[in-house]
């Protein structure tokens, strides 16, 4: 049984059919790619999967549970975490606090315990610190833990966003153009990091990407989206050699 089952997903904005009849089935532990030209509707799909937009029709199932139409917060608690195309960090908080914000639901204590500094506060905060530092060290960010997130260099901000998403302990991780704006070296490093988190956390990953080298390097299967419709789907090598796909990218 697939971890993520999406069938017949579609959304209309007024008269515009942004995504139509989209379907994808991702197995547990898979690294899946979603590609397509600009404006194909890739991020719209992400926004529907995470509850930012309510799909007009279709069903999204995570681990056989229907999560269609749930709120973003609930969907995260069900087990989908994401990063954003344009980085969205808590810029004025420290790097450590960004990750600790991600631990918000798993490590809970009441506001009263927080204000009056009850023993539970110290106990939970300590556990949070340890867990957060452990995550940061995976991304080689542990030395920057005390810096404010807005002061990090671009590549590290991307990594921090992934670390924050992982802190929510998801079943499925959605990465929206993780390599956007990176140079070839940084992209290479990012590829390694994605492979690493996949192994270390046994994570299922769905990523949107423009960088063909990255996609062909790490994704096992792909879905190609064009004008809101699925153009091709299947093994990476087969899809990239599909004449329809080449036509969509390069023109005739």
């Amino acid at each position: 049984m697939a971890l993520l089952d999406v069938n017949n997903l579609g959304i209309s904005f007024g008269g515009l059919r942004a995504v139509d009849n989209f379907e994808v089935h991702i197995q547990k532990g898979e690294l899946y790619g979603l590609i397509g030209p600009n404006g194909a509707g890739k991020t719209t799909v992400f926004n529907m999967l995470t509850g930012v937009y309510k799909p007009t029709d279709g069903i999204i199932k995570l681990d056989d549970k229907n999560i269609t139409g749930m709120k973003t917060t609930q969907i995260n608690q069900e087990g989908i975490a994401r990063t954003f195309q344009n980085i969205r960090l808590f810029t004025k908080l420290s790097v450590l606090d960004n990750v600790k914000a991600g631990l918000h639901n798993d490590y809970a204590y009441s506001t009263i315990a927080g204000i009056f500094r009850l023993p539970k506060y110290y106990r939970t905060e300590k556990a949070m610190d340890e867990k957060a530092m452990e995550l940061l060290s995976v991304f080689d960010l542990d030395k920057e833990a005390k810096l404010s997130a807005g002061n990090l260099p671009y590549g590290k901000q991307r990594k921090l966003e992934i670390a924050r998403a992982l802190a929510t302990n998801p079943k499925l991780l959605l990465l929206d153009e993780p390599a956007a704006g990176m140079n070839p070296n940084e992209t290479k490093e990012l590829m390694d990091t994605i492979q690493l988190i996949r192994k270390k956390f046994d994570m299922t990953i769905l990523l949107i990407e423009h960088d063909m080298k990255l996609v062909s390097g790490i994704c096992e299967r792909l879905t190609v989206l064009n004008f809101g419709q699925v153009l091709a789907q299947g093994k990476t090598a087969d899809v990239l050699n599909d004449p329809e796909v080449i036509k969509a990218y390069l023109g005739e």
């Binding site: 995260n76 954003f84 969205r88 960090l89 808590f90 810029t91 991600g102 639901n105 924050r164």
Partner: peptide, 14 residues
């Protein structure tokens, strides 16, 4: 403070 800095991201982490 997370909500202040970025509402959408705060929502996305539950």
């Amino acid at each position: 403070m997370a909500i202040r800095d970025n509402r959408i991201a705060a929502e996305s982490i539950g």
